[in-house]
């Protein structure tokens, strides 16, 4: 294992992020604040409590998930797309590093960034509504697992995309809708029965449900199912990445 190389990629990626850290943090924090103002205060006061939790508090885990997913995908896809775009990928391909090491460096950095953002949003949320965390260990567990999984997905998108438009397309057309429909702002039990079935196809639902359980001990689905689905999704992403590197898809000619 070329540990020095993994660290080099990781540090390089993190320092790229820190160069523009204010922008990177500011925009998610501002949008979270807006969600709380709009959903929590303005609209939320008209909602009754969900499962005994005030609506503002109820949406905190979902909001963190929303940011975690979009930021993981955005960071990781950009991280690997950028060297492909500038041509500096030649160095990565000619270096004595294995694919696993490349993925660990890039995905590790992307996941770290989104976890930091997730925690910042948690802190921001705490300013607006009461937040308590029933199972901190599981909370961190879901946070890390989700960040890693969606950073892997982002890595795949960054390898697949052959233009900046495609890089934006997937998050816009897939991730955001799935997150909104995945019980971020409501409990699936509020949906009509037919739609509850449809919602079960959405992987984000399992993430949000498990994550919310780690906060308040209430969940739409059993925690074991949530965890299992998250791990399954992680495995799918890993398999796709293994295939990418085995075939050199979009990386080698």
């Amino acid at each position: 294992m070329n540990l020095i190389a993994i660290r080099s990629i990781y540090v390089f990626e993190m320092s790229r992020w820190f160069r523009t850290v204010l922008q990177s943090i500011l925009s998610p924090v501002i949008s979270t604040t807006l969600y709380f103002v709009v959903f929590g205060a303005a609209i939320g006061s008209r909602f009754s409590d969900v499962g005994g939790i005030g609506y503002g508090s109820f949406i905190v885990p979902g909001l963190i998930m929303l940011m975690l997913l979009t930021q993981s995908v955005a960071n990781a896809s950009f991280g690997i797309y950028f060297p492909r775009f500038t041509g500096t990928i030649y160095e990565l391909l000619s270096a004595p590093v294995s694919y696993l090491e490349i993925v660990l460096g890039y995905v590790g950095a992307a996941a770290t960034k989104s976890i930091i953002l997730g925690l910042i949003i948690l802190a921001t949320a705490g300013l607006f509504v009461p937040v308590h965390i029933l199972h901190p260990f599981w909370m961190i567990g879901f946070l890390v697992l989700t960040a890693a999984t969606f950073s892997l997905l982002g890595f795949i998108i960054g390898v697949w995309a052959d233009g900046f438009e495609k890089l934006q397309l997937v998050p816009l057309l897939v991730i955001t809708p799935l997150t909104f429909l995945g019980g971020t702002f409501y409990s699936v039990q509020m949906l009509p029965p037919a739609w509850q079935k449809v919602a079960l196809v959405n992987p984000v639902l399992y993430l949000v449900s498990g994550f919310r359980w780690s906060f308040y001990g209430i969940a739409d689905l059993s925690v074991a199912v949530s965890l299992g689905m998250t791990l399954a999704f992680l495995a799918v992403c890993l398999a796709v990445i293994a295939w990418i590197f085995k075939t050199g898809y979009r990386l080698k000619t």
């Binding site: 070329n2 540990l3 020095i4 190389a5 660290r7 080099s8 990629i9 540090v11 390089f12 320092s15 790229r16 160069r19 500038t86 041509g87 500096t88 030649y90 160095e91 990565l92 000619s94 270096a95 004595p96 590093v97």
Partner: peptide, 26 residues
């Protein structure tokens, strides 16, 4: 390898990008 085309990290400093290469080679 010094490739034919100029591929560089525009936003990085000379020092960082050269040190990065050394790290990448372990």
């Amino acid at each position: 390898l010094v490739p034919q085309e100029l591929h560089t990290d525009a936003f990085e400093t000379v020092w960082k990008t050269v040190s990065f290469s050394r790290g990448l080679w372990g």
